[in-house]
Write a protein that binds this DNA or RNA. Structure first.
Length: 752
DNA sequence: AGCACGCCGACT
DNA sequence: GTCGGCGTGCTC
């Protein structure tokens, strides 16, 4: 006994008996607790626990173990929730990286890593009554039952033929009542137990198994490169730059197959909008039930069950939007980020992470290959291939050897001068649409989001007011009738007439035509055509989106008019014309990435034309036809776009040559908001080195939301680490007044 | 987040 | 002299 005690004492000495715990409230700090003896063997990093906290008990997570603590009076962990950790060390590490990089409390990062139904205390599994036969040969046991109780007999027969059934299904098929089943239970012929059921979001979806297609040489080369990377110990990320229709998805699927053969799992990230049934079906048809879909519209229960299906290893392939990067796939072999350039990968609430960058980190931590795929790589990703950080795979041809669409540009300035007035549709586009209607082909008209844009443009010469120092469009502010650069804060009065000396037109005005108006105009021009508008306003309801697309596919709609949501991934063979109403709306956003976005948008939209046998045509209307982004889009020439855009970024020290941080302050009292922003600036300025550029507090492009005034400060630095350090320091020491909130957005994408 | 402590105004 | 407003600070 004494020996046993000695060993026990010894192990207690060396075993860490203190747990570092983060609690469910975002306090951004750890608390130490003693691990009681009975939990000593069990507790590990990643466990969910309840701990005494002040006068109450709250839930938390064990994020570390140690045998010392700075705190003298430690309390004990009350109990463990669940019998195994909810987070593996790698996931915790990922959460910690996000917390540090994006300057967000670890608690909120853990919340992002774990879906909300998993964090709930109680058991979220759904149970249903399950009926089984207790004897194989029930006929022998009770022969009378067929005469006395035909209902019960029917139930028995059903059970006999199908083995066992859920109570609800049994009642439905046998057309019986629960009483009959209960009666059988009393007779001891059947047993009723509670059984866990899996809520399958796709239970009603029938799938037809597909097999790997034979690959074109360029696809084969891509697949080989991915496989080679997957066989490496520390693979580096790969960027697939493949034109629309080059067959990237098939490459992903065969890469996943390779991972499966190696006993590994995979994650496919897709932008929200691409997570249409089409995409999901393709993966489900190939991999069946091994696929878990982490749709953002899943009910809590479904999400919970899908997560557990992955955790248990029943599903080894996860597909979903940005949060799917946290899918608990163990032994991850491949992480695909499809449409890598999409901005929806950036989360716009804290923690404001970028799923593509988190994917890269997860790949690094778990030594798994990360594949980024897109037709229009983000500047950041392509820059990384040029620097040798990522591998580059090019896929320049469409699988079907169809030619890329012909892109035409219509100069709306000439149109305006000719017609004397600006119309929504140019003559050229009108004629092109008419031609398609005559041939019963279909048309997609693309229009940017509702005209929130607040830049000024001259309709005669295309002049747009830009900041001299920052090369971004000036933002119009109604208050004071001024133009402002929100990168540096420069202020300018609104000119009376067009400042272009050759033009001087007094018709200087705002950019932007609303979708509604365009619809009216088009309907007037083509009274017989069936036109459907598709944007977030018109497609409310669960299936509205799919219904409109279905109608379009079968030819019930002639012209589909829509916003971003029709720009991506749709494949309609009968669409031979794509028209862009105005390329300028995207171009003159007060954002240095406007050129990049315009190019991406136009290229993606162009990809919608000519997916069938008839070659496609694209017509782009613009006031600035010679803008490099528009010219590059016309030639569908990514390299030309990249070369000019990267030079622009280099000259002005914009990303990817620097990191951009946007600090936004908001509150109901405008003076106080501005004051707080100034105060923040004074706080951080002494901490920054001279390679950091920081703007004055400036009203945000959307200066007011729900009565709340918004100001922002822009910080740019080539040295992200020292900037990160300064921001951490400030976020700890700087206290904003309670009626002013502020948020720090690292690698800001949408500056609103 | 919650709950305590604490310091000023309007009541029994 | 006390009840209660919510500002501030702490929770291992």
């Amino acid at each position: 006994l004494s020996t046993w005690q000695a060993i026990n004492n010894y192990t207690q000495c060396i075993m860490p008996n203190i747990a570092n715990v983060i609690v469910d409230i975002a306090l951004n700090r750890e608390f130490d607790y003693l691990i009681p003896d009975h939990l000593c063997d069990m507790i590990d990093i990643g466990f969910r626990v309840t701990v005494p906290f002040g006068k109450r008990y709250i839930a938390g997570y064990v994020v570390g173990l140690s045998d010392t603590s700075e705190c003298v009076q430690l309390k004990e962990i009350q109990r463990c929730i669940g019998s195994q950790p909810v987070m593996n060390p790698s996931m915790l590490r990922l959460a910690q990286w996000i917390s540090h990089y994006y300057i967000s409390p670890l608690e909120s990062c853990v919340q992002s890593v774990l879906p909300s139904p998993i964090r709930k205390k109680n058991n979220q599994f759904k149970e249903q009554y399950f009926v089984e036969l207790t004897h194989k040969d029930h006929k022998k046991i009770d022969k009378d039952i067929y005469k006395k109780a035909p209902r019960q007999a029917k139930i028995l027969d059903l059970l006999h033929s199908s083995g066992s059934l859920f109570m609800t299904d049994l009642i439905k098929t046998a057309e019986a009542s629960p009483q009959s089943i209960r009666a059988l239970e009393r007779k001891g012929l059947v047993s009723i137990t509670s059984k866990q059921v899996h809520r399958n979001p796709l239970r009603d979806v029938k799938i037809i198994k597909t097999h790997p297609l034979s690959l074109m040489p360029q696809q084969q080369a891509a697949l080989d490169a991915i496989k080679a990377s997957m066989d490496e110990k520390k693979p580096r990320a790969l960027l697939i730059h493949g034109v629309t229709g080059s067959g990237k998805t098939e490459v992903y699927m065969q890469s996943i197959e390779y991972a499966r053969r190696k006993g590994q799992g995979a994650i496919i990230l897709v932008p929200e909008i691409s997570l249409t049934p089409q995409t999901v079906d393709r993966f489900r048809s190939r991999f069946g039930d091994e696929v878990a879909v982490l749709h953002s519209h899943l009910a809590d229960g479904e999400r919970h069950d899908e997560w557990h299906r992955i955790r248990r290893g029943e599903a080894v392939i996860a597909i979903g939007p940005r949060s799917a990067v946290f899918a608990p796939i163990s032994n991850l072999g491949l992480l695909v980020v499809d449409e890598e350039h999409e901005n929806s990968y950036k989360q716009e609430e804290s923690p404001r992470y970028h799923a593509r960058d988190v994917a890269i980190m997860r790949g690094t931590f778990e030594h798994c290959t990360v594949v980024l795929g897109t037709a229009t790589p983000s500047l950041a990703a392509y820059y990384n291939t040029q620097k040798g950080k990522f591998g580059l795979i090019k896929m320049n041809h469409r699988v079907d050897h169809r030619s890329m669409p012909l892109v035409k540009i219509v100069d709306m300035r000439i149109e305006a001068q000719r017609e004397g007035k600006v119309y929504v549709l140019s003559r050229e586009l009108t004629e092109a649409i008419q031609a398609r209607l005559d041939r019963t082909e279909q048309v997609i008209l693309f229009l940017n989001r509702r005209g929130y844009s607040s830049s000024l443009i001259c309709p005669m010469c295309g002049f747009v007011a830009e900041c001299d120092a920052c090369s971004i469009s000036m933002t119009y502010h109604k208050k004071g009738n001024v133009l402002r650069c929100h990168i540096c804060g420069h202020l300018q009065h609104v000119p009376e007439k067009c400042p272009n000396p050759k033009c001087q037109d007094p018709g200087f005005r705002y950019v932007g035509v609303g979708t509604q108006k365009v619809e009216d105009v088009i309907q007037k021009v083509f009274p017989k055509a069936v036109i459907k508008r598709m944007d977030t306003d018109t497609t409310v309801g669960k299936n509205a989106h799919a219904r409109v697309l279905g109608d379009f596919r079968v030819g019930k709609i002639d012209i589909l008019l829509g916003t971003q949501m029709i720009a991506k991934g749709l494949d309609f063979p009968n669409v031979t014309l794509v028209g862009v109403i105005s390329a300028d709306v995207a171009l003159h956003m007060p954002d240095f990435r406007a050129g990049e976005r315009t190019f991406q948008l136009l290229t993606q939209v162009a990809g919608r034309a000519g997916r069938g046998d008839i070659p496609g045509e694209v017509i782009i209307q613009t006031y600035t036809p010679f803008h490099p982004s528009i010219q590059a889009a016309r030639r569908l020439d990514y390299d030309a776009f990249y070369d000019q855009e990267i030079e622009f970024r280099r000259e002005l020290n914009y990303p990817p040559f620097s990191r951009l941080v946007c600090v936004t302050f908001r509150g109901m009292n405008e003076a106080k908001v501005e004051e707080t922003a100034k105060f923040f600036l004074e706080h951080i300025q002494p901490l920054l080195q001279d390679h950091v550029t920081i703007s004055d507090p400036v009203p945000a492009p959307i200066a007011r939301i729900k009565g709340s005034f918004r100001y922002q400060i822009m910080i740019r630095s080539a040295k992200i680490k020292s900037l990160n350090k300064a921001l951490h320091h400030v976020s700890e020491s700087f206290k904003a007044p309670k009626d002013v909130k502020y948020s720090i957005d690292i690698d800001a994408v949408n500056i609103l």
